[in-house]
Write a protein that binds this DNA or RNA. Structure first.
Lengths: 205, 205
DNA sequence: GCTTAAACCGACCCGCCGGTCGGTTCCATT
DNA sequence: AATGGAACCGACCGGCGGGTCGGTTTAAGC
């Protein structure tokens, strides 16, 4: 059963490198040869494992992007603490690439969604669904925060969730290629100010 | 001098239609024939007026996009009133297409910058410069607001400006193709809450 | 060690689209 | 009416890149 291992190994290498290159240069601006050359693989090898470039990308999204976004931005919300610091912390961590040159997974969503919105509605939907999961989890933790007396009663949780997501996505356009640490820091500071505005003044001890 | 008029007329028609189609389908996903067919013009006519597709797009950006963004988001800031309502109002107006199906000019910046960041750094720079002008004007009106006692002293004006821009740009990704009126309304509401957080509590009468 | 199928190779195909170019039409000027 | 140049036409070119396909290598099973 060494063959089976080889297959998984090759597909994994393809996906990892694909994510890297697609993220760096965009999907439509990347040609398969660029990736295959890097991995010393041939067209034949590629089409043995994937039906098409599109199929390949969907596999990458489902196996890598989705998992990482959930791990960084959704799972941390599964707690009963004060929601606002939890959200802030998850976003801060998501913005901070752990190892040097690691990819900020949240950011690539903005790029890919923008790219596919005009080109391929099917893939755009896959990507938007990932955001949607983040959104419903944000809404639900915010609502619980209201019940628990952490968040002001007047706050519209759906509105707040989209607003948080929007600002997070928009940062990508501003950061662009420059890994501007200052900008990231500023963003988190302003988000804190916004959180001040929606938190319950008299915390129910 | 009828020839001169004809030239301007044709170039104007090309730019207007180009903006419409590029915005709808993206620059790289639009081929010139799509545009030329709509206008009943030929390749020859096009290359008589523009050096290249790229040259054409730059003309569109400078003649249409830049002008509109400045008119909607920069010029309104040139006032001595309380900055926060002024900013809010300009953004609200910019989000609201006047005539039905008119383009929200701010939004296209996010799309175009994302598209060109990975493909053509020269054009990306043109586009980012437009944002930059908005940013410096935001910073300056915020700083004046601080002096005039409208904005809390602790506020980082540069940070606030990028944060406002980020949230505005990020909305595009969420709105995508659906002209979701509710989402726009929610966004403005949350922006108001953020503005509450940065305004001076004791307004100097 | 032979068979068989999976894994892989790489030359080739072909549609798409930006750009070219030799020509035609229109119109201001004389 | 003749001229010349601007505006425009549209068939064609050529590179690029996704996808194909016949062939070769590798290794599991017997």
């Amino acid at each position: 059963m060494d063959k089976n291992l080889k297959k998984r190994e090759t597909m994994h290498r393809l996906c990892a490198k694909g994510l890297e290159v697609f993220h760096e240069k965009g999907y439509y601006n990347t040609n398969l040869d660029d990736i295959l050359k890097d991995l010393s693989l041939s067209k034949g090898a590629f089409y043995h494992h994937f039906k098409s470039k599109e199929d390949y990308f969907i596999a990458i999204v489902q196996n890598l992007v989705q998992q990482k976004v959930y791990a960084l931005l959704v799972e941390p919300l599964n707690t009963h603490e004060n929601p606002l610091p939890v959200i802030l912390d998850s976003i801060e961590k998501a913005l901070e690439p752990g190892r040097p040159n690691e990819i900020a997974y949240g950011f690539m969503l903005n790029d890919f969604i923008t790219e596919f919105s005009k080109r391929n509605e099917e893939i755009a939907t896959y990507l938007r669904d990932i955001l949607k999961v983040w959104e419903v989890n944000l809404v639900s933790i915010l609502k619980r925060g209201k019940v628990d007396g952490y968040i002001a009663r007047h706050v519209d949780c759906e509105g707040a969730a989209s607003y948080i997501i929007a600002s997070y996505l928009g940062m990508r356009t501003l950061l662009a290629e420059s890994t501007n640490r200052q900008l990231k820091y500023n963003y988190v500071q302003q988000l804190k100010l916004y959180f001040n505005a929606i938190e319950e003044r008299q915390v129910v001890a």
